[in-house]
Amino acid sequence: MHLWLSVALIVVGIFSLTVGATEVSLGSALWKVVQGEALTRMEAIVLWDIRAPRLALGLMVGAALAMSGAVMQGLFRNPLADPGLVGVSAGAGLGAITAIVLAGLAPMWLALAVGDQLVPVAAFLGGWASTLLLYRVSTRRGRTSVATMLLAGIALGALAGALSGVLVYISDDRQLRDLTFWGLGSLGGANWTKVLTAGPIIMVSVVVAASLGRGLNGLALGEATAAHIGLNVQWIKNTAILTVAAATGAAVAVSGGIGFIGIVVPHLLRLGTGPDHRPLLINASLLGALLLVLADMIARVIIAPAELPIGIVTAVLGAPVFLWILLRQHAMVDL
């Protein structure tokens, strides 16, 4: 399964480099490189500065979202959990909206320090702040209650939504458009700066999270039993929450709100390889990367030369798939 997904990922990745609004051929560019000829300026810019970072970002964001979804479902022992449950999405959204609407009020030194990366930075910090808050609220005497976290997350999400509403209310038309599009998600702003800042965070998180398979299998038997068979339950929870907050926070910061990858990908994989988290986590990051790059290709070509926000594509494809999975299981989801 790992192997097949990896092969498919490479094929789709190469294919995605060839697809876009402009008529630039990867094949002829590669041939030129092999022949030692210089690329045209157009070819160099489109391939190296636009499509390649976009592909890299798509791979990372997809892996981060799908892996985070699988980890959250394991941690919350609930097949409907998604990364939003640890407060990342709500906080990141609030951070992004704050940055979009209040950017004009930012002090000069801040504007100079982060430049045009203000929105991603604000989203990342917002995501982290809300996760840490939720974690504090639901941890007593060194034990984190995931049930409390779930419920407090709903409250925090509502609060963040209300604050976002205030900001939306005072925003002007251009800002409103910006934040709406942010919420729909896009890889359109991909550049190497984003890849190199979000990349290491996501990659470290995904690698660390991949080691949680055994622990999450144990948690499936219940927290008490997981401890009885020798697992350090609090360590598993801490690792899961921190890696998901980091990976999802970074992914949301650079790509906006992209839904359904985190929930559909693990479900699809469980149909194939069962609930064992050890293969699931690695397969999820591979399939998530694959599907997101695929969705991005669709977003780029379906109304070319314009571009559809990728969140729309993932939702339109993801929602029916998710419904199909639910109906296939005879709606046997225990909450």
Partner: peptide, 24 residues
């Protein structure tokens, strides 16, 4: 430890439940 009641979050096979107990 055999708990009084136990739940299982995902559809594991019976043998997998036993193996998870050995996996740590």
């Amino acid at each position: 430890v055999l708990p009084q009641a136990s739940t299982l979050a995902f559809p594991f096979h019976a043998i997998e439940v036993v193996r998870i107990g050995l996996s740590s």
